[in-house]
């Protein structure tokens, strides 16, 4: 388990129906690639966030598969359509089974 994992999400507070908005997400995570060795020469096991999803009122905006080549503290920027008022749900899935969530409401 990576300690102190902290999601950050930037979503406008309001939009007009049908608007395209830009969403940015950042989460603190070491994204240990599995390629490195520790001081004694033993491989450090891979421990990454392997999937990120963004949904709006239950419908998918984006579903991303992450590999070890994604940098420490994974960052994503993408665009979503806002058909109505509602809530964005952001979910990060860790290799160790942990799931991190954040939600942002948006008014229309």
């Amino acid at each position: 388990m990576a300690s102190g994992v902290k999601p950050r999400v930037k979503v406008p507070k309001s939009a007009s129906a049908g608007d395209a908005i830009t969403i940015k997400t950042l989460i603190s995570h070491p994204m240990e690639s599995g390629q490195r060795k520790d001081g004694d020469g033993n491989p450090i096991p891979r421990s990454i966030i392997n999937r990120f999803t963004c949904e709006f009122n239950g419908q998918s905006v984006i579903d991303i598969t992450l590999e070890p080549a994604i940098s420490t503290n994974p960052y994503f920027e993408f665009e979503a359509t806002v058909p109505e008022a509602g809530e964005f749900a952001f979910t990060w899935y860790d290799d160790d089974g942990s799931v991190y969530n954040d939600n942002k409401a948006i008014a229309v």
Partner: peptide, 12 residues
């Protein structure tokens, strides 16, 4: 400030 990964530490 959102793009700046150092701001994660500010939150912490």
């Amino acid at each position: 400030t959102f793009d700046n990964p150092g701001m994660i530490a500010v939150d912490q």
